[in-house]
Amino acid sequence: MTSPLFAVATDGGLDAFEGLSNNVPVAPFSLNFGTKTYRMNELTREELYRELQTNPVHPTSSQPTPQDWAQAERAASGDGLPVLALTISSGLSGSRNAAEQARALVPELPVTIHDTRTLSAAQAFQVHAAVTAAQRGETLETALDWVRRTHEETELYFTIETLEYLRRGGRIGRVQATLGGLLNLKPVITVDKQAGIYTNVGRARSYRGAIDAVAAQVTSRYGEGTPLRVGLLYGSVREDADALLAALQARHPLVWVGMTGVNPVLNVHTGPRALGVAAAPGRWVWER
């Protein structure tokens, strides 16, 4: 096996997939219910849903601390390898700033920080690209090229049952501006590739209609019949992802499919019932 020239770390914006090289050290986010704080790996999704239903205090999330980032980078580096740190979009979180501050805590490690300008399943695709490069003995420069190309061709779309959680978390921005006061509509949301913030690209009057609208966005972006890789995400209802998968299979050959639950920190901002997909065309960039 080729010895890696660098290591990879990321943060809690990641929704990891078993079928991807996503097993890297993570700088975790935290969830705060008033004075009670959980690290994101201390609360299961089911426990979160119970808290959301029974706790009168709406939770907030906290970005990783510089110490969290330093710990993840040391864990990744092992015997002193340079580290590529992939962060959730700086338009959605201050995690990148924390990673920058962590440099002072690990002066012995060369750390390259890359803003994915996305999150969740799309962040998982970029982590997979970086780790694959490392496993193949490629240079850090090659890894960054693969990560950037993966970002350019990958879209993340999701829908939610209610805008209330985005509103409470202060992340509704362009989505609210687009939908106006029609809060009963189900939005289809993406992440702007340049700004790295949420923006609305569609709407539906029912949740089932929103699932179909997500599938339609994917087909509109890539063209019907285009082979795709898809990473599906679900909140409290696993069957939503099955419905989206069936809609995509009716329009596209799928060359890779993964499915995972939205992590508790991200689920705080979407609300329990959420559905999403990261999609990209054809094979991985290094397989072409």
Rank of each mutant, 00 (worst) to 15 (best):
R283E: 13
N200K: 13
T60D: 09
E239N: 12
K36S: 13
Y49W: 15
V188P: 06
R283I: 11
L182I: 11
I113Y: 01
P227L: 01
H252D: 12
E141P: 04
Q123E: 06
A121Q: 02
P56W: 06
I88K: 02
H252I: 14
T118K: 00
Y234F: 12
Y49V: 15
A213P: 08
T219Q: 10
G180F: 07
A75W: 02
L20I: 02
A75P: 01
Q217Y: 04
T37K: 13
R39F: 03
A274D: 07
G181W: 14
A177T: 14
P264I: 07
H114I: 01
V24K: 00
D212M: 11
L20Y: 03
N97F: 12
R96F: 09
E47H: 11
Y49K: 13
A70G: 11
Q135C: 04
G225D: 10
H58A: 12
A76R: 11
D79P: 09
R167N: 11
Y234R: 08
E47F: 13
L244H: 04
A99W: 03
A134N: 07
P227Q: 05
Q135H: 14
R273V: 12
L179D: 14
E224W: 05
E108P: 04
T112L: 01
D68L: 04
A250D: 14
H252K: 12
A243M: 11
Y222R: 02
D68G: 02
P66N: 06
I172T: 07
A215L: 06
R288F: 00
D192A: 09
R167K: 13
P59L: 02
A16V: 14
A16G: 10
W256C: 00
Q126M: 02
F6C: 05
A85V: 01
V191R: 00
Q101K: 08
L245C: 11
L84V: 09
T60E: 05
T270D: 07
I113F: 01
T162G: 06
Q67L: 07
G13Y: 09
Y49H: 14
D11W: 02
L254M: 13
A215S: 12
L244G: 08
V83C: 09
M259F: 12
V24L: 00
L233S: 02
I160W: 04
L232Q: 07
T150H: 00
E239C: 11
G13D: 12
H269M: 10
V230Q: 08
